[in-house]
Design a binder for these strands. Structure first.
Lengths: 249, 249
DNA sequence: ACCTGAACACCGTTCAAGT
DNA sequence: ACCTGAACACCGTTCAAGT
């Protein structure tokens, strides 16, 4: 019964296992042949090319022309590599310009960009099960919160709105990125056949089944996003009725 | 460059790697000492106790009093064990009674039950990155689709509504199950400190940060769910205006 | 400051062999 | 039909040693 040591490695200079909360320790001088950046960059390339469970310290090192143990000078664990790779792709999500086209447009743009990145790097959806605290993620969260706040979303509605939006993208991205496409299209066909064969037990699924065509993902996502935004907007309207200054409750 | 063989194991009797789509091959006679059910049950227990990355064929076998290689008689791969375990916990999600209290109440009950299960077995959230085709999952999807259909949701709105709801629970569950709690509470504190220390870069986050108290999860989830349901309901209302029989478009 | 090699304690899975 | 043991080809990570 050695189940008590659930917490991960207890880390070096920082308080906890997360990369982001640890102090950098060294500020790289002149760019050395092997840098943390190059490792992360190559990790993303490897993940894009072969998926999450083919990422190995040994294989990653090979692509970089080093031994696997060398990586551990620049990086503490494999989990660090994953955290860093996950944050790196968030840099691809464009942050909409400031005084733009109103809050709905800004948030819609951010969420759509976010979703696009998740689909461009399908492995990322599965990695989202680790707390996202990297600088690129935080910068985009900052925009989300600031825009909502500026739109008039206050108090508990603020976190609800932010979480609602985030959860929705994450869930959607996870489901779509995960769902068999391309090479695994055969699984999809087999699933449809399976549902059809068992249509007595699952009549509605067999008829209107969840194995939709590719286009439906887009419209479905957009529709759900609209619903959430409408809900947020209605909340703002109600708050305004009670007087624009009554932020408290 | 051996990156071409992306597809998983190409399976035995069925078409693809998924457990569900394969034919059972043997119908267990009198219950043997080691059954597929016992394996799955023990796997869930192990996952609950120690989390996903501590589940090992060897450790699982040890808990069952066998050698690890014996498991492969009852199960094809470790992924099968995970798929089966994931479906098993879905049996805990109660399917609301048929002619109940209206569609909103029914769906709300299902979604809340679903969420409760995800939080009771936090490892499950991370496993959701595999297509869910097990019988327990399908039975609940069937209820969801049937209820929506009965409520008057039609055409593309149906898949949008079903996916919107599913994605929302999954995203929420993933985020909350993932977010450091309990033993890893220290990470949370460190994160808050980190945000505070960098409050010049993340002013809004530092002030209204995403590191909420536990209660906020509940209210936030309920609020977002209401928004989505409102959106679905509004869609039904619009469809009814155009005449109750105009399902088509 | 950075890189290397050997080594440790594991993995998932196969397969011939037993009963 | 079910279980076992030995074996293969891997893992992540540590650490003394090199430059």
């Amino acid at each position: 019964m050695e189940a008590s040591e659930a917490g991960r490695g207890t880390g070096g200079s920082g308080t906890a296992g997360q990369v982001w909360l640890r102090t950098p320790a060294r500020a790289g001088r002149a760019a050395p042949p092997l840098t943390r950046e190059r490792i992360v960059e190559e990790a993303v390339a490897l993940l894009d090319a072969e998926g999450a469970d083919r990422l190995t310290m040994r294989r990653l090192a090979e692509r970089l022309g080093t031994g696997s143990t060398t990586l551990y000078w620049h990086v503490k664990t494999k989990d660090d590599v994953l955290d860093l790779a996950l944050d790196a792709i968030f840099a691809e999500v464009e942050i909409p310009p400031e005084g733009g086209q109103g809050w709905r447009a800004g948030i819609t743009a951010l969420i759509n960009g976010w979703r696009a990145v998740l689909l461009r790097h399908p492995w990322s959806a599965a990695l989202l099960s680790r707390p996202m605290l990297g600088p690129n993620v935080l910068a985009r969260s900052e925009f989300l919160y600031a825009t909502l706040l500026e739109a008039g979303v206050t108090g508990p509605g603020l976190t609800a709105a932010a979480y609602g939006l985030s959860n929705y993208v994450i869930g959607s991205g996870l489901m779509q990125a995960t769902w068999p496409t391309g090479a695994e299209r055969e699984v999809r066909r087999a699933a449809r056949e399976y549902l059809h064969a068992n249509r007595e037990r699952y009549p509605v699924l067999a008829a209107h089944g969840p194995l939709v065509a590719d286009d439906d993902w887009e419209t479905g996502f957009a529709l759900g996003l609209t619903w959430i935004l409408d809900g947020i907007e209605a909340g703002i309207a109600r708050a305004d009725e009670r007087g624009p200054m009554s932020a408290g409750r």
